[in-house]
Design a protein around this nucleic acid. Structure first.
Lengths: 148, 148
DNA sequence: GGCCTTTAGATTGATATCAACGTATCATAC
DNA sequence: GTATGATACGTTGATATCAATCTAAAGGCC
């Protein structure tokens, strides 16, 4: 008797065909490549574009607010900011009201690069939306939001 | 005149609310954390689980087949296999029919770990599906597949 | 056989991701 | 005012991700 030597093949197929984590990771990698390719001429990745655009607001946000918006770990954000700071696209300053906090701001250079990135995003995003059926983009976004 | 100094705020909000790449990345991070947490007791990450289960087939697949199934780069797969090989969960052998190719197989230890992982996956996945409305899981999977 | 193209992977370097742990600051209770 | 806990970040170490580049082997053409 004893436990079976192998996980059943049906389970393998079930996971492969049904796992939402796997499906989302696959789509995430595919979309990342698509946007990375499109943004490469101006030297940005999809994640860097998302991060920069999330900083384009009247009041500079703190680390936690940005991390929450991007649904990423705090420490991931710290690491992601490093190359952008090195390139002079963002600046991180101490918050005078609360010296624990850091305020993240776009520099003029960062804003200028963002202006060049937006039309690339628009074109690339239109291409992605075209893959989906009518009205499915909205439904997809809604379902993805539920998972966060 | 000249170009505007700042990307318009409406664009920022459009990207934040509409970008499918950002939405998928966010959901990918959130689901990754959820499955990583659930699988941590047995020492696996979500990606390692997906990889191991994709190796549970009668005939050991090559690198390209697995990379394609997971929609990841071949070199990413090479790197991902490294810790699994070190732990003795998978074995990589030369393909005698084509000495360029490598055949990836689960070891007995890898199969045993997978057997422990499956019930964790089932429970975690049921929790995720419960977040979505009736029938939305299928639609979500379908839409995500279109993007790969 | 010898040359060329294609195919299958590996390596390197950069960035992304998070857990675990550590530090500095704030807020509150006493 | 000091101790205590909570909050906001940073650092380190491990894995994940991919582009660029490399090697090795197979297949085709002459």
């Amino acid at each position: 008797m004893g436990a079976p030597m192998n996980p059943p093949l049906e389970t393998t197929h079930l996971v492969r065909d049904a796992c939402l984590c796997l499906h989302v990771q696959r789509a995430a990698r595919a979309l990342a490549r698509r946007f990375d390719d499109a943004l490469r001429p101006i030297g940005l990745t999809h994640g860097q574009f998302s991060l920069l655009i999330s900083l384009n607001r009247p009041k500079p946000p703190g680390m936690a607010a940005v991390a929450s918006l991007l649904a990423m770990d705090r420490t991931t954000l710290t690491a992601a900011l490093k190359p952008l700071r090195r390139r002079g696209l963002v600046k991180v300053k101490a918050d005078s009201a609360d010296r624990r906090g850091r305020l993240i701001t776009l520099t003029a250079r960062g804003r200028a690069l963002l202006i060049r990135a937006v039309p690339i995003w628009k074109k690339t995003h239109a291409g992605v939306e075209a893959l989906l059926g009518d009205g499915e983009s909205d439904r997809l976004r809604k379902n993805l939001r539920v998972l966060c």
